[in-house]
Amino acid sequence: MKKLINDPADVVPEALRGMAAAHPELRVDHENRVVFRGDAPVRGKVGLVSGGGSGHEPMHAGFVGTGMLDAACAGEVFTSPVPDQVAAATQGVDGGAGVLHIVKNYTGDVMNFEMAAELAAAESDTEVVAVVVDDDVAVQNSLYTAGRRGVGVTVLLEKLAGAAAEEGRPLAEVAEIARRVNATGRSMGMALTSCTVPAAGRPTFDLPDDEMEIGIGIHGEPGRRRVPLAPAREVAEMLVEPVLSDLDMTGGDGVIAFVNGMGGTPLLELYLMYAEVVAVLEKAGVGVARNLVGSYMTSLDMAGCSVTLLRADDELLRLWDAPVRTPALRWGA
């Protein structure tokens, strides 16, 4: 393992120290490992709390700021935060208009956020609504799985719900927008290499040079199937087609198309992939209204990418264009 670390056990707290130093506009609670907007709680505004395991940077702490999240809880690498962290974040962003929990659908995340909401209900009168993100078409949503995983749509949802909260919309409406985004967005990912969890010290799985994994998540877990390495053109088809066959994206106002890097893939390849994705969409008669290209939801040093498509409408496009000022996403502000 070659990593820029000191002790594998200290990776998360030491990274948070660097984040605090780099972004004085944020406030970092090092004891609870929560990153807050500097001005939280914002009086009268719905507070948005997300969080999850570390190793997906810039998600989630990189999305804390005006127009997006109010707080992000950092768990250990690939391990959901604990209820106390989420409870501290919830208290810290409650400006009197309630708090939205944005939870990616993983067994641990869902249970820890649930326990935190139970704590909040028992110890305060903060109103908490949770929205669970489950957009990964690689997993069949059935009784026989933990349900689809929360992946790329999480980034878009945090931006869109964040913009709605910033407009002063009430909790029920912000939650409704979040649910609508989750219902109309889907993702599919692939890996060229595994990733190495610092505490494990070796790649999570072996992947020969001439093979790739299709249908991966964001935790270095192997995908649905392993296939021979193929040109980007074919990879784009393998990712876009399952998304389109799961959810009709034709007609309407087009889509927000998001090509996300898994951490170890250069932007050069991501732009190349984006061009291939656009070509596949054109052939399918799907227009692209907005796009996002870059590594926003990573899996440590994994090479690979995911494609997320979100069916757009006037309101979602307006919220997308609204100002955002966070370490990882900023425009219009």
Binding site: G53, G75, E76, T79, S80, P81, V82, P83, D84, Y106, T107, G108, M111, N112, M115
Partner: peptide
């Protein structure tokens, strides 16, 4: 355990 483990095994 609930305070320190995280993931699924902490709550379980």
């Amino acid at each position: 355990l609930i305070k320190t483990v995280g993931g699924a095994s902490g709550p379980l």
